[in-house]
C-alpha cells in the first residue's frame, strides 16, 4: 500500500504541476491582446452581382463559379466554392445574402479539432492547416453554420472553407478579396468592435432601412462576420435558432469532469478491491 500511496501522490504532483504550467502558457497567449478582424455585410446594399464569388475563387485558386441561376433554390458553399450569394424573395422584395464561414469568436470547429488543424488566429480568422488535419470531419459535425466542407472525391482530401484570406492577404497587410472588390460597399472589413459600432450607426440613422438586429453580434457566442438586413434574418435562410452562448461551452462540463474522474475513480476502485479481497481469503486457503 505504501508504494501505491507514493505513486498516487506522484501522479497528483505531476498533474497539478502540469496544470499549473498549462495555465501559465495560456495566460501568455492572452497577453497578445489583439482585437479580432471582421467583415460587416450589409444586405440592403448588396445588389447580387456575385463579383465576390469570382474574386474568392480567384484569390483561393478554386474553379471559377458556374453560371448562376438566381431563381434556382438557394445554393450552398461546397468543396469548390467558399462563398455564395443567394437571392431571397422577402416581404420587402428581393434581398441578397452572402454565406461563408462566420469566423466565430469561440469556434466550435477549433474546440472540436483534435489536431489543432482548425485554428483561430489572434487576428480573428479561423483557418485550416492541412499538415495537421487527419480528415475526421468532427469540425463539420460541430459547426453550427455547417461551414467546413470536405472533398469526398479525393484520395488526399482537403477541408474547404473561408479563411478570411488570412494566409494570402491579411498576413500581407491586405484585406479579404471579397471585401476589397465589392462595387456596392456591401462588405466592410475592419476591427470587429468598430464594425459593431458602424452597424449600430447605420441602423440608428435609417431605422426604416434595417431591422434592429446585428446577426453575429451574439449568435454562437459572437462571430467575426456580422450581418445587417432590411428583413428578419429568417427570411434570408439564416439559422436563427442558434444559442447565444458559444458552442464549445457545451462540452466544457464534460471535459472539466475528466481530471476529477481520473483521480477519484482509480482510488475508489483500489479501495473497493482492498475491501472485498478479505472476504475471499479463507476460501482460497480452503482450496489448497
Amino acid at each position: 500500500m505504501d508504494l501505491d500511496r507514493r505513486k498516487f501522490l506522484k501522479v497528483i504532483g505531476i498533474t497539478s504541476l502540469s496544470l499549473a504550467i498549462g495555465k501559465d502558457i495560456k495566460a501568455e497567449d492572452t497577453k497578445v491582446n489583439k482585437e479580432f478582424n471582421g467583415v460587416l455585410y450589409d444586405a440592403s446594399r448588396c445588389k447580387g452581382c456575385h463579383g465576390c464569388e469570382y474574386d474568392c475563387s480567384e484569390a483561393n485558386s478554386l474553379p471559377e463559379p458556374a453560371i448562376i441561376d438566381e431563381d434556382a433554390p438557394p445554393r450552398k458553399t461546397d468543396e469548390t466554392r467558399r462563398t455564395v450569394v443567394n437571392k431571397f424573395e422577402t416581404s420587402k422584395g428581393p434581398v441578397f445574402t452572402k454565406i461563408q464561414c462566420m469566423h466565430c469568436n469561440e469556434p466550435a470547429c477549433v474546440a472540436a479539432c483534435l489536431t489543432q488543424a482548425m485554428y483561430k488566429t489572434p487576428e480573428g480568422a479561423v483557418i485550416w492547416r492541412e499538415d495537421k488535419c487527419m480528415g475526421c470531419r468532427y469540425c463539420m459535425i460541430s459547426c453550427p453554420f455547417d461551414s467546413p466542407k470536405f472533398e469526398y472525391h479525393s484520395p488526399n482530401p482537403k477541408i474547404e472553407k473561408c479563411s478570411m484570406c488570412f494566409e494570402t492577404r491579411i498576413s500581407q497587410g491586405e484585406i479579404p478579396a471579397c471585401a476589397e472588390n465589392c462595387p456596392n460597399d456591401a462588405l466592410l472589413f475592419g476591427n470587429r468592435r468598430e464594425l459593431i459600432s458602424e452597424a449600430r450607426r447605420r441602423i440608428y440613422e435609417s431605422p426604416d432601412q434595417y431591422i434592429e438586429h446585428i446577426y453575429g453580434e451574439h449568435e454562437a457566442g459572437g462571430t467575426c462576420w456580422l450581418y445587417i438586413s432590411p428583413v428578419p434574418f429568417k427570411e434570408l435562410g439564416m439559422n436563427t435558432k442558434l444559442q447565444k452562448e458559444s458552442y464549445p461551452a457545451l462540452t466544457k462540463g464534460f471535459l472539466y469532469s475528466v481530471p476529477s474522474i481520473f483521480v477519484l475513480v482509480p482510488a475508489l476502485l483500489l479501495g473497493i478491491q482492498q475491501a472485498t479481497k478479505i472476504n475471499i481469503l479463507p476460501k482460497e486457503n480452503e482450496d489448497e
Binding site: T115, Q116, G135, C136, F150, L255
Partner: peptide, 28 residues
C-alpha cells in the same frame, strides 16, 4: 477507413498537435 487523411492519425498522439479542448482527442 473513415479518416480523410489516415496517415495524420499520429498527429494527436505525437508532436505538438494536442487539441486538448476536443472531446475526440480524449476519446482517441
Amino acid at each position: 477507413l473513415d479518416l480523410g487523411k489516415p496517415w495524420n492519425v499520429i498527429n494527436p498522439v505525437i508532436g505538438n498537435n494536442f487539441g486538448v479542448s476536443s472531446v475526440l482527442f480524449l476519446v482517441a
